[in-house]
Design a protein around this nucleic acid. Structure first.
Lengths: 250, 250
DNA sequence: CGTTAACTTGACGGCCCTCAAGAGAGGTGG
DNA sequence: CCACCTCTCTTGAGGGCCGTCAAGTTAACG
């Protein structure tokens, strides 16, 4: 399947790490902070945890012990609905914060699962709770990441509320494209880390619909697709599709 | 329309107010904090603002000056989609925090509008930014409210992703019911503050579908309806409806 | 090479959206 | 007080998008 499952014998070994020597710090931390407060930040990083593909960082219902900043890999969050079917509520790449919802009740409300082998930085809640006042920079960091999550969710609900299936899929591809670009990867050609099922679940569509739409986009020469490798061929036309030139909203 | 538009001559007058004598503080503030840190909290409240029905607290694109805690009334947040149609992304009652999304970029991403005459407490961003380290209680308060918003949005996306129209409407009624109960009002009988249009927009449905569903629920004796006054008649049966006994999800 | 999971493609039907028109409520002016 | 206007809401008819069901194809891996 994914070719990343290989020399994975040296895993699950916690590594003491600081933000200073972290290669994703420019994404993870706001620019002004990355330069000034790296040592300060690092005291909140309990450790770096290796997470194997398919395993959980935390589960719904667990009491909050830590927040997690993604260092490497892609993660999904999910909830189960009444029919015990998985509902994917988000995908998270390097620099994202996972688990902040639990700051309300003290319990996590969803599962966080690695889509591929990855690493997360553990931000101890005890330290956050006890020491934030000594580090305004860290507060700002947390506020910013939480606000970012609120933004993402607002836009997600907007997408789910009033756009046709094609528009959702294309918007999703552009979202991924932006995320990759932000991290220095190509924005025109990238590898999907999630299954069609997870993608469909996130978009509120059936897997067949997603598959059909991707096929159609390919036959229209708007994208090129080989399994999970996606290439955006005609970005202007794709953007027109996303805007919904045929005006079929609610 | 709403009979609340009347003796509205003494409005828009900022009132110096403290949390200590606020009658919604038990909803607004976490319990442990309400007892200990009221004086501390109050220093962040710049003023209380009266907001007239239909007017905005802030608009999308505006730079962030303050966050707002709802003191009285009901507010909606909305964004405009590509076709310049309103998309309602949330309803907020007393104790809710509005505007936290702007902590990410420094700009508001949606409009916040009063559905009826109300009051909000202005939390100056300048003071938040400069002084939070001196007040861990206030930090906890903000984290909690933001986390609460994240939770709400997660559940909103879940609802939009995989539930039929009836289930969305009923879930919405129960949400309102819970909110009213939390504030000491009847959970079985309450007045909708939003138009059918706003409700439909929030639920990702057309206004006709919402209207039809409410009519059907009434003809099934599950609810009683007179204009915007809703009474939940058969709560157990409604809950069964919401759970989706006919198994029609994505 | 066999098994399993992931993905694609087709046929069909139902939910819900669109279009359209009418009913009800609230406000205003004569 | 009633006519009139406007906004909101309801109800009906028809059609299209997308979900379900089903079967076949491809990829991954031992």
């Amino acid at each position: 399947m994914l070719s990343t499952v290989q020399v994975q014998s040296i895993k699950a070994k916690p590594v003491q790490r600081t933000c200073t020597n972290c290669n994703v710090r420019d994404i993870c931390l706001p620019a002004d902070m990355a330069q000034q407060n790296l040592p300060l930040m690092s005291q909140f990083i309990t450790r770096t945890i290796h997470v194997k593909r398919g395993t959980r960082i935390f589960s719904a219902g667990q009491t909050l012990h830590s927040l997690y900043a993604v260092r490497l890999g892609v993660f999904k969050t999910r909830m189960m609905n009444e029919h015990h079917r998985e509902q994917v509520t988000g995908f998270y790449m390097a620099g994202a914060l996972i688990g902040a919802d639990a700051l309300a009740s003290g319990r996590h409300t969803y599962d966080a699962i690695a889509l591929e082998d990855g690493e997360v930085c553990e931000l101890s809640y005890a330290r956050i709770d006890a020491q934030t006042q000594s580090s305004p920079a860290f507060q700002a960091y947390l506020y910013r990441l939480m606000a970012h999550e609120i933004n993402r969710l607002h836009h997600a609900t907007l997408l789910l509320r009033d756009t046709a299936a094609v528009q959702r899929v294309v918007a999703f591809l552009f979202n991924l494209s932006d995320e990759f670009a932000l991290r220095g990867y190509s924005h025109k050609s990238f590898l999907l880390r999630m299954t069609r099922n997870e993608m469909a679940s996130y978009l509120g569509l059936s897997i067949e619909t997603v598959s059909r739409i991707l096929s159609r986009l390919q036959s229209m020469k708007l994208i090129q697709m080989q399994n999970r490798l996606i290439e955006l061929l005609d970005i202007p036309e794709l953007k027109k599709t996303m805007k919904g030139d045929d005006c079929q909203e609610n």
